[in-house]
Simulated scan of single mutants.
Amino acid sequence: MRVADLPGRPCSLAAALQLVGERWALLAVREVALGNHRFSDIARGTGAPRDRLSARLTALVAAGVLERRPYATAPPRSGYHLTAAGRDLVPVLQALLLWGERWAADRPAVRLHHETAGHGDHPVDGTWTCRTCGEPLAGARPTLTPAGRTLLGLPPEEDPR
């Protein structure tokens, strides 16, 4: 997608939302990430109208977020699976889930947790990690590129800290 072709302020966020910013799209990705690969299971998990869900799944396949894989030959049937792009959306879904728990839901129905042997159950928060070396940023602030400063409305020389 050409960022320059998007309306308003052109940026990668606008391009991402153009692909997955519709409610049923992200909920469909959530269901596939949770292991629901069949259309009927995705429909049940999202509560989406079947025609809208079908359109969203088709768009997500076309965008390379999901792929279809056959699971039956008679009759021919395919399930939906995450691609590398879809797997990269999982931390985004986790971040939205955590934000929703804090700011949108009166009583969260889903909680992310990490169970450790002998140490019980721990809540999970998302973290920023370096894409190259995998190290967590651990409180360090990422550096903004000139495009990032423009997106935030900051002049190039101003330090946002």
Rank of each mutant, 00 (worst) to 15 (best):
T132C: 06
P70R: 14
A85Q: 11
P160D: 05
Q94R: 14
T73P: 00
E31G: 03
A4V: 13
G21I: 10
L112E: 01
A14C: 07
A25K: 01
V20L: 07
A74N: 12
N36L: 10
R107Q: 11
P155Y: 02
D41C: 07
L97H: 11
A109F: 00
A85P: 01
R9L: 15
G120C: 07
A16T: 14
V92N: 01
V90I: 15
Q18E: 15
A74S: 13
L97Q: 11
N36G: 09
A55F: 05
D125H: 14
R44S: 12
E101T: 13
G64L: 09
R107F: 06
D51W: 03
E135T: 13
P75G: 03
G139L: 11
Q18K: 13
P146E: 12
P76N: 01
G153A: 07
A15G: 11
V29N: 00
V110D: 01
G134L: 05
A63N: 05
A109G: 07
R102A: 14
W99E: 14
A25T: 04
C130S: 10
Q94W: 10
P10W: 03
L19K: 02
A55C: 08
V124R: 12
L19T: 15
G126Q: 09
A15D: 06
E157S: 12
D159R: 10
A48L: 04
N36H: 15
L57G: 02
R77K: 11
L57S: 01
C133P: 06
A55P: 03
P7D: 08
T145G: 00
H114A: 09
P75Q: 01
R141C: 07
T73V: 13
P91W: 05
E31N: 03
G21W: 01
A85E: 15
S54T: 11
R149A: 08
A147E: 15
H114K: 15
A84W: 03
R149T: 04
A16F: 05
G79D: 05
G120L: 04
A95Y: 11
P146R: 10
A147W: 09
E115Q: 12
P123C: 02
V124L: 12
P49K: 13
V92W: 03
R77P: 00
R44T: 13
